[in-house]
Design a protein around this nucleic acid. Structure first.
Lengths: 202, 202
DNA sequence: AGCGGAGTTGTGGATGACCACAATATGGCC
DNA sequence: GGCCATATTGTGGTCATCCACAACTCCGCT
């Protein structure tokens, strides 16, 4: 969806309208949702931007909404706003990975600044995720044998050693090696190592 | 110094004594400091463990102490404790990289748990830092020319191409390449790439 | 002037990577 | 049975890497 869109989740219509107006005047696109449930029912994994979530709401709370998002692997940056927050709550939210935690009443410009930074952070996150997905899509094209050979290549072993280790001929290793380079769209073992270190370099 | 030692910084002697006793009964080594100034004057870059810092102190505050630590490149995990904290302060501290932010009165076991986790985190950090230092020490052994050649190797280029690019002969590139592998203690370009990606893979 | 490190280049040869082409065997799917 | 993907092996050759040995220049230091 919109790559730089703030999703406002608050059960108070007056606040939703105020925030919508605020963001509109600052040229930040946004959507509004009257409840965590409705947002969660609508949100798609490919939505970009960030979420601005009120902590205290009827039904599912903002914190529960955050947990639900993360539980389904959605890494959208989340800015919490609350009128009755306390320190342990804020600490817990940030340690779980919230982008920010803002108390009401807040300064309009401060909120906009935070949201803009969250949108920037999400843009970067999406870029990284895109390259990671590309690499993983290529990895998925490899056969089991090719993956085996690739691991040995990344271990810096010679084809001859790999051949011994897998009990096959050197020619076969060369064939697999060639296919691995082909499918991974690289031209050398060095490029392959750098590509792999982008996605799973732990 | 002590690799798993909690450094307690609080200007209230009663609290220092209480915490020292608490940690002693839980088998967590600790040191105590009556002010941020004295801790900062004594702390060395190779100190491990974590810091437990009171926010409100005479003289330099806990937050200023944290900033001073980070300003000199010290990445010791810092657990803040405070009796009069507010949400913005806690949020700012965590966003700056504090390990945790705990309000008084706190549960003794909770504090010990947090400190133990901080000590674990620091042990991991030190491990990573040690390997990074090793690699950087090796990098420091390289001459300017060797570094140039290494970059081209990491770009996946052939010796011949590197030679053209640097306006030198292929033999010279081979000599540099050999020295780079020697000094970096690797046996192939793949190992080199993995080593470099450990330290500065950006 | 002498010394040593850094950068440079060369010869000759062993070893490994890579490619085009070809071929066999196995298993799953229509 | 025919088709296709996968895995396997081989020939013959080109190109690149790696190594031991040797030598020259330049520059800074003593």
């Amino acid at each position: 969806m919109n790559p730089a869109c703030a999703h406002i989740i608050d059960d108070d219509e007056a606040i939703r309208d105020a925030l919508q107006w605020l963001f509109k005047t600052r040229d930040v696109a946004c959507t509004t949702w009257p409840s965590a449930e409705e947002f969660l029912a609508a949100v798609q994994p490919d939505w970009g931007g960030c979420a601005v979530i009120d902590i205290r709401m009827e039904g599912m709370s903002g914190l529960e909404c955050f947990d639900a998002l993360r539980a389904r692997g959605n890494l959208l940056p989340v800015v919490f706003i609350t009128g009755h927050g306390d320190v342990p709550m804020a600490v817990a939210a940030l340690k779980k990975g919230a982008f920010d935690f803002i108390e009401k009443p807040f300064n309009d410009s401060d909120l906009v600044d935070v949201v803009v930074r969250a949108l920037d952070a999400d843009a970067q996150r999406q870029l990284a995720a895109a390259t990671r997905e590309t690499v993983e899509a290529r990895l998925a094209l490899l056969t089991a044998r090719e993956r085996e050979v690739m691991e040995q290549i990344l271990a810096g072993k010679y084809n001859k050693v790999i051949a011994d280790h897998l009990n096959i001929s050197m020619r076969t290793v060369e064939a697999h090696r060639s296919k691995v380079f082909d499918k991974m769209a690289v031209r050398s073992a060095v490029e392959l190592a750098q590509l792999i270190n982008l996605v799973g370099g732990r």
